[in-house]
């Protein structure tokens, strides 16, 4: 294996920073008790992380 394998780099820089607030309010998602935000995609970059790659639009 490579000694240092970069899996993801500076990912926060890649994110939209505009804070448009158009994305889903996270507690509207599945859980309603232990919500997180990191499992959501930006509304402008929605790659449907909860779908199989072959099913993503």
């Amino acid at each position: 294996m490579k000694q240092i394998n970069i899996i993801a780099k500076n990912t926060f820089d890649k994110n939209h920073k505009i804070g448009c607030n158009e994305c889903q309010a996270s507690c509207q998602s599945a859980c309603k008790t232990s919500c997180t935000v990191g499992n959501q995609s930006c509304v402008f970059q929605d790659v449907a992380v909860n779908k199989k790659e072959s099913d993503r639009a």
Binding site: I7, A8, T11, F12, K14, N15, H16, K17, I18, G19, C20, N21, C23, S26, V37, G38, N39, Q40, S41, C42, Q45, D46, V47, V49, N50
Partner: peptide, 12 residues
Amino acid sequence: MIDLEKGPCISK
């Protein structure tokens, strides 16, 4: 679920 490449903005 985690989106390392296209996750939410810093504000969120």
